[in-house]
Design a protein around this nucleic acid. Structure first.
Lengths: 176, 176
DNA sequence: CCCTAAATGCGACGGATGTTGCGTTAAGAT
DNA sequence: ATCTTAACGCAACATCCGTCGCATTTAGGG
């Protein structure tokens, strides 16, 4: 049931994009009644929030490549993939976050969790002796990943994998 | 007339935020009839687009502080101010850009223009001999400003002026 | 000054969106 | 097996949003 609905949301998202996503269409496609959707999910952003949380991997950890730069490049490639996927759930939830507080909070929670997990990559670099312990992990990750979000989500322009890597390298260099 | 409407849009934005902005409320506040708004501006995003374009400064140029780093810091402070203003027209238009293609295009146009103008700051640095001529201006500006957008718009968390400066310095260092 | 055309005001309409009351079904407890 | 409770289906309803036809005003040209 919930799976049917979320699958329908994803399919509708792929066909019509975020602005063309309606409760009714999801109801028809999933075979679940309109009223049920309104009762359990309230709004379109609510559906997207659930989709985001259903897709969140509870065991996610940043890849260990042996160097800070390599780790950051790996993270950037994951972000790049998530933002260029079709449909990109992340992109849709970002759009939704401007409409309801719940979506905004869900997104903040999701990212907070990711930033916390990703900080592991900084600790590993400290243990290796690559960097000192006073590096601000959040700031470092912002430097690495923010350009991807800006270019792909806000500017809505393509970014090559090479440029994504470049920004990871700039971030790594900023703390060396 | 147009000025009345745009002022009403800004006021409504300040009071209810982007998701609470309706054509009807703007009509009542501005004293202009609903129908007229629908005819001239079509949608809420349309109103915001017009507000953005009305506020665009045709003569804008990046401040000349005498160094690349100083110039980037100045740019970042402007971006910081625009994103923390209340109401932030930029934030609202970003939200609108997820709903209609026109808003997305208007935003892209606006930023493209800004990026083009800001490239001047790189040329000045080249003339000064600070950097070589093969620096990618767009990439450099992404490095400097993207973290502010990510933190303030997407993560919806505060960022101190000092951190904004930090990201400008990282960007400057990446090409030195 | 008058005529024409474009823009605005106005009320009514149609469609989409979200809500409510009620009957039915499904799940769990005893 | 029966009772209880929660979830779902269903249809009717209310509301909001955007559109349309028509009257009125405004601006500009002859």
């Amino acid at each position: 049931m919930r799976a049917d609905v979320l699958a329908a949301v994803e399919a509708e998202l792929a066909e019509h994009g975020y602005d063309g996503l309606t409760i009714d269409a999801v109801a028809v496609r999933s075979g679940v009644h309109r009223t049920t959707l309104y009762r359990r999910w309230k709004t379109v952003p609510g559906l997207l929030v659930d989709l985001l949380e259903a897709g969140a991997d509870d065991a996610w950890e940043p890849a260990d490549t042996g160097s800070l730069e390599g780790d950051l490049i790996a993270v950037n490639r994951e972000v790049h993939a998530a933002l260029t996927a079709r449909p990109s759930v992340t992109q849709a939830v970002i759009g939704a976050s401007f409409r309801t507080a719940e979506a905004a909070e869900a997104l903040t929670r999701f990212w907070k969790d990711r930033y916390t997990r990703t900080a592991l990559l900084v600790r590993r670099a400290v243990e290796r002796g690559e960097i000192t312990g006073d590096v601000d992990a959040h700031q470092l990750l912002l430097t690495a990943t923010a350009p991807l979000y800006h270019q792909l989500v806000l500017l809505r322009q393509p970014m090559s994998r090479a440029k994504a890597d470049h920004h990871a390298r700039v971030a790594a260099a900023s703390v060396h």
